[in-house]
Design a binder for these strands. Sequence first.
DNA 1: CGGCATCCGTGCCGATACTG
DNA 2: CAGTATCGGCACGGATGCCG
Lengths: 131, 131
Amino acid sequence: MSTDYGDADPFQWDTREDCQVRQILDRIADKWSLLVIALLDNRRLRFTELRREIDGVSQRMLTVTLRSLERDGLVKRTVHPVVPPRVEYELTPLGATLHATIQSLVTWTEAHQEEIAAARESYDHREAEAV
Amino acid sequence: MSTDYGDADPFQWDTREDCQVRQILDRIADKWSLLVIALLDNRRLRFTELRREIDGVSQRMLTVTLRSLERDGLVKRTVHPVVPPRVEYELTPLGATLHATIQSLVTWTEAHQEEIAAARESYDHREAEAV
DNA sequence: CGGCATCCGTGCCGATACTG
DNA sequence: CAGTATCGGCACGGATGCCG
């Protein structure tokens, strides 16, 4: 590595803004991407099915999200040449490996949501009486 | 359709917009939060140290991010009453359990960044010649 | 059905200035 | 050093309309 940023610290990783990992993290840690990947586990879903399952997503955002996931090779898009059109989405093998990680994030959140809610309440309470 | 949403499907989870899990996911899957949690692994860092390590973060965003992480009980903030002020941040036990998951996300991204880059290039290439 | 193009509001975030 | 406060731009994303 020519421009040696800090790979001195073994605990450290490249945190530069133009870093590949940072850019990819921003993409997949996106609000809708997370949900799509979580929902596509071992399933093939149509556009409308996904839209219905993800409460609050607009058509535009679902399209945009699916496009970038497809571009990143995480989701496979299959168009059936019928009328009316039928488009199905599923995880690629690469996407499937990511799913495990995403799922652990979801599981962690489910497991600790009460702790977080409690922490928030306690925090807000301290704030309130501090004022 | 009544209020009992689909817990019929074992693969499924609550995807309603007002769902706790969704809200928490949005918070912790935030661009800066991920980085902060990743960086605070087994370390106590001062505000300025964090700021220096995270390329591109503004003072404002780092403050805002740290506040919500503190509020969620993931990060502990310690103020040393000295001049100049010395404020240190570290993961709480709860934050430490989250770190493992975040780290696996980072590791996955590092491991697969070339595949993703290749997928993107291939996708863009197909797009280009399709036009 | 599954898009894409356009318009446009708003909320996020950077820049700047000020405080303990 | 480690913040808070305020302002303003702009990009994100919702709404709408049209198409294969």
